[in-house]
Design a binder for these strands. Structure first.
Ligand code: ZN
Ligand code: ZN
Ligand code: ZN
Ligand code: ZN
Lengths: 157, 157
DNA sequence: ATAAGATATGATATAACATAACACCATAAT
DNA sequence: ATTATGGTGTTATGTTATATCATATCTTAT
């Protein structure tokens, strides 16, 4: 979990303000739930945690809508290969958000978000050029085993 | 759709035989359904097409089991980002099956399966080395727009 | 201040995707 | 022939996601 949630929330408010949209209390709370989790969560898991953390049971429909909003504003990412949602690791960074690459540990479920190296993206695009296909390059999801799980031989989940 | 289904089916029988498993009639039929489709299909869509093509309504549970089998034998791939299944494009090739890369057209839904270029895989692995993460590299799913759709401006689906 | 409009959320229903558990039957091994 | 294995059927349930309409809240113009 990020060590400076307050600062991330502050940055999120600013980002939404400059985009001309509103980070409502509930949207902020959903983001807080994700920021407080060490692994990505499904929409239904967010409902459960939201209830625990904020004492209110939101309909899952609302959670999906808030997730849509947060994804739109690039504050949250959806892992398509896992049907789970996680807060962006770079909300409080100053740099522009680049094409993300997710390293998903198949043992502990933790996910590390890094930016795709520029030259790899270039190579990827070149390699598919002959097919005429044009990349929309949203993101890359790579599965494997994280350092911690390799060191500790944590059983698969 | 592949132009030589008979040959692919023949190869599939041989692959299963040498793996010591059985390609039953129904499993073969499921594979035929996928071979006959220009786009990947969901398990439920396979049920529908199976009925049309073979006049028998299979329970979706059985379809999932047959898909598991076909995936195990590398005759079928699952697109995780789409929850859909497609026959492997290289069943009748002689070469070893490599880490596949799927180019998924977000307009027409067609998918092209190609092998990941060796040097790109190497670069990818090198780029994440500092994180200590070890790739399981199952497959890469890339979204975008295919040549045909770019040329024809087919509306998004 | 109030009404009109826009945005956000709630409620309900249902669709779409997937697995668990157990029963039954055919074929293979003994 | 008997038992073991594998394949399929049946039923139930779990999980993820969307559609639709209602209600609440917030803005803005008058
Ligand atoms: Zn991010
Ligand atoms: Zn791990
Ligand atoms: Zn393949
Ligand atoms: Zn296309």
């Amino acid at each position: 979990m990020p060590d400076d949630i307050d600062r991330i929330i502050q940055k999120s408010y600013e980002a939404c303000a400059s985009a001309g949209v509103k980070l409502t209390d509930k949207r902020k709370n959903v983001l807080m739930v994700l920021l407080g989790s060490s692994t990505p969560l499904s929409a239904y898991e967010i409902v459960e945690r939201y209830k625990i953390q904020f004492g209110e049971t939101l309909p899952v429909m609302s959670i999906y809508r808030m997730l849509d909003f947060l994804i739109q504003e690039k504050l949250v990412h959806k892992l398509e290969t896992a049907s789970q949602y996680m807060s962006c690791a770079h909300i409080a960074c100053e740099h522009q958000h680049e094409t993300p690459q997710f390293l998903i540990c198949d043992r502990c479920g933790s996910v590390k978000e890094i930016a795709i190296k520029k030259h790899i993206m270039t190579e990827l695009e070149r390699s598919i050029q002959s097919t005429g296909f044009t990349l929309a390059h949203q993101q890359l999801e790579l599965h494997g085993v994280c350092k911690h799980c390799q060191d500790n031989s944590v059983p698969a989940n």
